[in-house]
Each structure stands twice: as C-alpha cells, then as structure tokens.
Amino acid sequence: MNSQKFDHFVRRFVDLILLPCIGLGIVLVLWSISSATWAKELPSPTKTWEASKPYVVEPFAKRGEMDQGILRFTWYSLQLVAKGYVIALLIGTPIGFFLGLSKTFTKIFDPLIQILRPVSPLAWLPLGLVLFISMGKEAGTYGALFTIAICSMWPTVLNTAVGVRAVPQDYLNVGRVLKLSRWKTLTTILLPATLPYMFTGFRLSLGISWLVIVAAEMLTGTPGVGGFLWQEYNSLIYEHIILSIIVIGVVGFILDRLMSLVESRFKTA
C-alpha cells in the first residue's frame, strides 16, 4: 500500500468511523450521567443493554402477542407501513399529476391540501378508527392504514405537481411538433421527465409513513415496534422504550438510504 492510498484510507476511517463514534460516545456519556443524577428512572446504557439482550439476540423469537423479538416487531410494522405507503403512492401520484397539469384543479384543491397537510397523524387516527368502525376487530389496522396513507401522501402529491410543472416547455414542444397523442405525450415525455421529482416525493413519503406507524401502533395497540414501545412504557420496562427508539431510528435511516439509492437511479440530466 503506497502512502497516498494509506492517507486516503486513514481519512475515510476517521470520517466514517472515528468521528461518528465520538458523537455516539458523547451521547452515551450524557445518557449515563443523566440516569445517574437527575433522571433516576432513566435506565443506564448497560442496564438497557442487559434488559434488551433477549430481544436483540433472538430477534425473531415469539414468546407471546406482545413479547416477541425486536426484528419480528419491526417486520410487522414494516408490513403495515408498506401497505399504507403503497396506498399513499397510488392516490398521491395521480393527484400530483392533476395538480401539475391543471390550473383549475390546483385552484380547487390546493387550499384544501395546504390545510390538511400539517394535520398530525395523532389527529387523523381517531377519524380513521371511526371511518372503519364497521370492521370490528380490524378497525385498528384499517384506521392505521388510513392514517399512514393520508399523512404520507403529501410529499408525493406536491413533488409530483412541482415535477410536472417543471417539465421544460421545450420537451412539450417536441411532442407538439410531432403531434403526439395526449397518452403518448404523458408516457413518453411527461412521466419520464417527472420521475426524478416523483422519487424525491416517494422518499419523503416513506420517511413520514415510518414516522406515522409508531404513533398509529401506540394508539391502536397493534403488535409492532410502536405497540411494543407503548406496552413496555405501561409495564414500566423503560429499557425497552430506548431499545425501540434505537430500532425505529435505525430502520428509518435504512429505509431512507434505500430510497435514495432508488432515487439516484432515476436522476436524469
């Protein structure tokens, strides 16, 4: 290994491993100090690890409805998120296209969207439960899906709309000169030109779905990371709250990275 390569290796090691570890270390120290001094109920890092061990080393174990390995819970949550997210995309993308294409449509629905967009998932969930009350036992699941879909579709709607509006007039003129049909213009020009924006929306939407699932599970008591978190809070096992938070964060981060990879594939010049 020559010295230049070595330097490069060292720099990458420092940037990617050493510096992030320093950040982690600072948080661990503050956490330990806090649990030892002013927040007596906060379990220390070591206690957290000991209490979490069975859930982490056997991540897919199933010991009971609310006593399962952490990845098994994560898997339940991800399944619910996937469903809600797909619904959000299926509804959000066409709405975004209409908003981008039609000024009238924008004038009709934009104020409504701007009002509904900032509404918290915690506010939507009760409405979802009421909407699907006839489903009986399944009301919780449907309510959660409704909440995920309605909260996470806005970035897709808005980014798609912006993307459609940002399609260069020149591209559309190409279609006009060639007298392409409306359908052909949509599939060969509008859609590919909007894809990069759409995928940015998809990525942001995925982040929100993951945010919403935790809240939805907490309120409905569905098995999943969020449900687990809330149950352990009620059972006074605070170590598991921290475990859940870490898992939620890591999963959210991985989802975001995966979507970025997909997104970057659709970046056109």
Binding site: P168, D170, Y171, N173, V174, A193
Partner: peptide
C-alpha cells in the same frame, strides 16, 4: 430548437 430539446432519458 436552440437548446437541442433532446429527451435526456
């Protein structure tokens, strides 16, 4: 067109 207007994809 002045700016080519080729579809980049």
């Amino acid at each position: 067109f002045q700016n080519y207007s080729l579809l980049p994809w």
